[in-house]
Design a protein around this nucleic acid. Sequence first.
DNA 1: TTTTTTACTTGTTTTTTGCAATTGATTTTT
DNA 2: AAAAATCAATTGCAAAAAACAAGTAAAAAA
Lengths: 148, 148
Amino acid sequence: MLKNKTYRSTCPLTSLLDIIGDKWSLIIIRDLFMGKNTYGQFLNSPEGISTNILADRLKLMKNNELISYVYKEYNKKVKYYYLTNKGIDLYPIICEMMLWSDKHLKFKEMHPLGLQSIKSIKESGIELEIKETKNSYLKTRSELLKIL
Amino acid sequence: MLKNKTYRSTCPLTSLLDIIGDKWSLIIIRDLFMGKNTYGQFLNSPEGISTNILADRLKLMKNNELISYVYKEYNKKVKYYYLTNKGIDLYPIICEMMLWSDKHLKFKEMHPLGLQSIKSIKESGIELEIKETKNSYLKTRSELLKIL
DNA sequence: TTTTTTACTTGTTTTTTGCAATTGATTTTT
DNA sequence: AAAAATCAATTGCAAAAAACAAGTAAAAAA
């Protein structure tokens, strides 16, 4: 298991890197924004995360309170993951990262979240896009939590 | 050496993670914004990067055109690193990351870049802070490049 | 010319990742 | 109720990357 014992410095950038500074965590967060919320759905993403890494990252991000999960009453097997408020607040970072790539890398085709978010940002600005995505996710989440 | 052969997917988020998705790259970028620009100065940062990792990341970021370097005419030993435009464009991401940490983590004390940037953002807004930091860095860089 | 500084490289150990196979509980089907 | 299928993991192993310590080579300073 990837260990996250203590922060390397008092730098706020470094401390967030201590939490999500790897190749997979933010991809899972992206998937949650996309509406995915189960282990199996995360596994199906095009990046092809392996099962042990996925299990490890879910555990770590749960410990760091970026995500949490619930069971549905009629199914004791599947965990339904969701973003906490702390997790939702990562969206501006994800936006800026997608914008950077859109500006500096060349894509022949593009993943749906990227395509839609970037279009939306260009049309109505980043602040509105962030606000709308957060609200939209809050709605999704409250529906999940209401069907406990 | 950390290898960066090909992108894992067509997602703009993933592609940037393929480039800087590790625990050290953004810390070096931060240091460059802080005015550090030599191997020795990067080594002195509080996080304590090891020499082989630093050399590796500098090489990778140079390959990815986030940074470059020059020699000064009177010194053939020390490389003076600087951010390319592509590298400078990472600053909004760094800002959002610092803001996230400021909101969600508790710090007793704080690293100078974090302290100053966050204060500045709270006073005059993130867009102005980004603009000012970019301009300020461009000035620093042009002075370096002029004294070839 | 010697010493010091500086940017690395090398070698070794530890940690993390990637991959394939398997498990064990739960759910679905028969 | 029993058998089959599903699903979220876990395990074991090999490969890659990171951490740590020591050393090197070239240039600059003394």
